[in-house]
């Protein structure tokens, strides 16, 4: 590979998608966050990463930031909708306990990526967050920049059925939307990914359009529903079995939470695919959500019996 001849401008957050990610990572690293890599499983949102779901629980301080590719099978549009993808990126920040200047930190991060509050209208608009599958809720806002929702800001009150003590603050940046705004493009596929121009330019569409087309077909038409139903049931059973195996009784630490939680993530994704395939009726839907929630809650209860969960 030949060295690319470009100036530092290519990595400006308003010039490239990767520049936006790099800037946010650097910003939060400088604020003392652990910069993690994405979790290596299919998840519906950055919150599912154990670095948020599980680490939000227990008394130990925890500050982390990471990009998480997220999959929402139902949002597939065969690459035809410029704003809606079945695979997209979230940038996730979790700070426990929530620092007193969290709003200011957040605004500072916007400034770092080029959103100047002297010319932009930034607003915190009520939006109470709830994840029925994770048994989690919190209060906070959707953050608006000139009428566009660019982030979700939540003070977790409960996660995986456990009260948060202390409360963690969670920030979720919708990266594609933010990048589109910064780059001034109306079509997500036209986002400049690498910040170069001419032949060297790589767009978001170059990277992902084919994937959007193929996965939309998969999610809506080809995914093997019988197998998915089986996967769901197996993941559910495996999660419970692992939790049972790792349980060492009163006062002892639990030894199998993270692997069990992976199974909860698997069940959740299988459910999302089945839902996209339209094979789950309205009434069944509720009961599937409940089943995933029960797994998440069982994992949460086990997590607080581990070292990272704060058990003695």
């Amino acid at each position: 590979m030949t060295a690319l001849t470009h100036g530092p401008d290519a990595l400006r957050p308003d010039r490239s998608f990767q520049g936006l990610i790099l800037t946010l990572q650097r910003f939060w690293a400088e604020k003392g966050c652990v910069i993690l890599q994405p979790y290596d499983m299919e998840v519906g949102a950055g919150t599912f990463h154990p670095a948020t779901t599980l680490r939000a629980l227990g008394p130990r301080p925890w500050n982390a930031a990471y990009v998480q590719p997220s999959r929402r099978p139902k949002d597939g549009r065969y690459g035809e909708n410029p704003n809606r993808f079945q695979h997209y990126y979230q940038f996730q920040v979790i700070l426990k306990p929530s620092p007193p200047n969290l709003q200011e930190l957040y605004l500072e991060s916007l400034y770092a990526i080029g959103i100047d509050p002297a010319v932009h209208d930034l607003r915190f608009v009520e939006d109470d967050w709830e994840s029925p599958t994770l048994g989690a809720w919190g209060l906070g806002w959707e953050c608006w920049c000139d009428g566009m929702e660019v982030s979700q800001f939540t003070y977790f009150q409960q996660v995986a059925g456990q009260e948060c003590a202390p409360v963690a603050g969670e920030l979720t940046y919708g990266l594609e939307r933010l990048a589109m705004y910064l780059q001034g493009v109306d079509n997500g596929f036209e986002l400049n990914f690498n910040g170069l121009e001419g032949d060297a330019k790589v767009t978001y569409g170059d990277v992902f359009r084919q994937a959007e087309e193929e996965y939309s077909r998969h999610n809506f038409e080809y995914a093997n529903t019988e197998k998915l139903f089986r996967n769901f049931a197996e993941a559910e059973a495996e999660c419970r079995a692992l939790l049972a195996a790792g349980e060492r009784g009163e006062g002892e630490r639990h030894r199998q939470v993270l692997p069990a939680y992976d199974q909860c993530i698997k069940a959740s994704h299988a459910f999302n695919l089945l839902d996209a395939r339209g094979v789950i009726s309205v009434t069944e839907r509720q009961s599937y959500i409940l089943r995933v929630r029960e797994l998440a809650k069982a994992c949460g209860a086990a997590w607080v019996k581990t070292e990272a969960g704060g058990a003695a």
Binding site: P59, P97, S98, P99, P100, D128, G138, L139, G140, Y155, Q157, E163, C164, A165, P166, V167, G169
Partner: peptide, 23 residues
Amino acid sequence: PKSMRWGAASTSSASLRWVRPLR
């Protein structure tokens, strides 16, 4: 109608509740 806990103080369940953090 809905209130919350926040910050380091929320380690205790008796900490102050407000609609959003009281500054």
